[in-house]
Simulated scan of single mutants.
Amino acid sequence: MTNAVYTLVVRALSGVVSDRAAETMLRAVLREQGLSAESVSAQDMQKVLSGPLLSRLSTVLPPARARKELSVLSKQLESQYPKAPTLFTQSGPVATWDEPQNETTFDDLGLGADDFEFDDPDYGAAPTTRTYDLTQPGDQDALIQNLGRLSGVQGVMVCRATGEVLRVKAVRDPAGLGGVVAASAMLFQKRSLKLMSADLGGQTVCVCPLGGYCVAVVATSQANVGRLLVELQQLRVAA
């Protein structure tokens, strides 16, 4: 039977890759290190996270994303086992908005339907679907944090379809973004759409309707918008 350390790590890793990939990947690196899922200690697991598992995960995710995900996981392990501190020496924010940035706002954008690029509603390529109960503040925060870990993301906002802001995290005050979501929601009602994105010149806003809610993501112009749209397309609201 696997022990608590292994179970903690494999469950958390399953939020980054598929359940099967998490199990296969973790068991493989443990085996390479002469360790087992039944007896691995928290100290040994910290070495695995910052070394062989980081190397392996970096082959399926961008290296920066892999490091960030495992750094977060390593800190979770440390919180459960204080005598096994994280070995990630390059500390950094969990999400981009934890870093100081220059001030800007989203006021007076004057967006209309012609400013948006519409995604094909039949397109789907991501293997992992994530379900959130957006009536619950905890799930709203979890959704924001997961999207905030994607490279290039500078802000995430959860709103009602009317544009009423429920939760937001951003590198700077996203004034006016609620209005962008409200305007987007009206376009969603008129067309059969699942996603939309607007290029604001230096930044991109992506909006995804989720039942009676909307999620808006602000990303830099260097962000992989295609990847971001795929991630948004996998979001679901709990029934």
Results as ranks from 00 to 15, higher is better:
residue 52 P to H: 11
residue 165 V to A: 12
residue 136 Q to S: 14
residue 131 T to Q: 01
residue 58 S to F: 08
residue 54 L to H: 08
residue 100 P to T: 13
residue 126 A to H: 08
residue 196 M to Q: 15
residue 121 P to H: 12
residue 162 T to P: 05
residue 209 P to E: 03
residue 40 V to L: 06
residue 4 A to T: 11
residue 26 L to D: 06
residue 202 G to W: 03
residue 129 T to S: 02
residue 22 A to I: 12
residue 11 R to I: 02
residue 202 G to E: 05
residue 11 R to K: 12
residue 16 V to K: 04
residue 19 D to L: 09
residue 2 T to M: 08
residue 230 V to G: 01
residue 219 A to S: 15
residue 44 D to R: 14
residue 144 I to Y: 01
residue 83 K to P: 00
residue 103 E to N: 09
residue 94 V to Y: 05
residue 206 C to P: 00
residue 115 D to N: 14
residue 87 L to N: 02
residue 201 G to S: 03
residue 206 C to F: 00
residue 216 A to P: 05
residue 22 A to C: 10
residue 53 L to S: 05
residue 51 G to A: 14
residue 158 V to Y: 02
residue 95 A to E: 14
residue 55 S to P: 00
residue 166 L to P: 12
residue 204 T to E: 03
residue 114 D to V: 09
residue 75 K to H: 14
residue 180 V to K: 01
residue 149 R to S: 06
residue 42 A to L: 09
residue 148 G to N: 03
residue 143 L to Q: 02
residue 86 T to H: 02
residue 161 A to I: 12
residue 21 A to Y: 01
residue 103 E to W: 12
residue 123 Y to D: 12
residue 217 V to A: 01
residue 134 L to S: 05
residue 173 D to T: 15
residue 112 G to N: 12
residue 218 V to D: 00
residue 28 A to D: 14
residue 201 G to H: 02
residue 37 A to T: 15
residue 86 T to V: 04
residue 95 A to G: 15
residue 152 G to E: 03
residue 201 G to M: 01
residue 197 S to P: 00
residue 138 G to I: 12
residue 85 P to I: 03
residue 149 R to T: 13
residue 121 P to C: 13
residue 110 G to S: 02
residue 223 A to E: 01
residue 4 A to I: 08
residue 228 L to A: 04
residue 234 Q to D: 09
residue 13 L to K: 03
residue 159 C to F: 04
residue 23 E to D: 14
residue 92 G to H: 08
residue 130 R to D: 07
residue 160 R to C: 06
residue 3 N to Y: 09
residue 83 K to N: 13
residue 221 S to Y: 02
residue 82 P to A: 07
residue 178 G to A: 12
residue 11 R to Q: 13
residue 144 I to C: 10
residue 11 R to F: 02
residue 229 L to E: 13
residue 155 G to H: 08
residue 231 E to T: 05
residue 100 P to N: 09
residue 211 G to W: 02
residue 74 S to P: 07
residue 48 V to C: 07
residue 200 L to T: 07
residue 124 G to V: 13
residue 199 D to W: 01
residue 94 V to N: 13
residue 129 T to Q: 04
residue 189 Q to G: 04
residue 176 G to V: 11
residue 138 G to L: 11
residue 66 A to C: 11
residue 215 V to T: 07
residue 206 C to Q: 08
residue 81 Y to S: 09
residue 231 E to H: 13
residue 129 T to V: 14
residue 154 Q to K: 09
residue 223 A to N: 03
residue 13 L to S: 04
residue 39 S to K: 15
residue 47 K to H: 15
residue 166 L to S: 07
residue 81 Y to I: 08
residue 84 A to Q: 10
residue 206 C to E: 01
residue 17 V to F: 04
residue 191 R to A: 13
residue 105 T to H: 12
residue 70 L to F: 10
residue 160 R to Q: 15
residue 91 S to L: 09
residue 20 R to K: 11
residue 162 T to G: 09
residue 98 D to Q: 14
residue 131 T to I: 10
residue 210 L to R: 03
residue 204 T to A: 02
residue 28 A to Q: 12
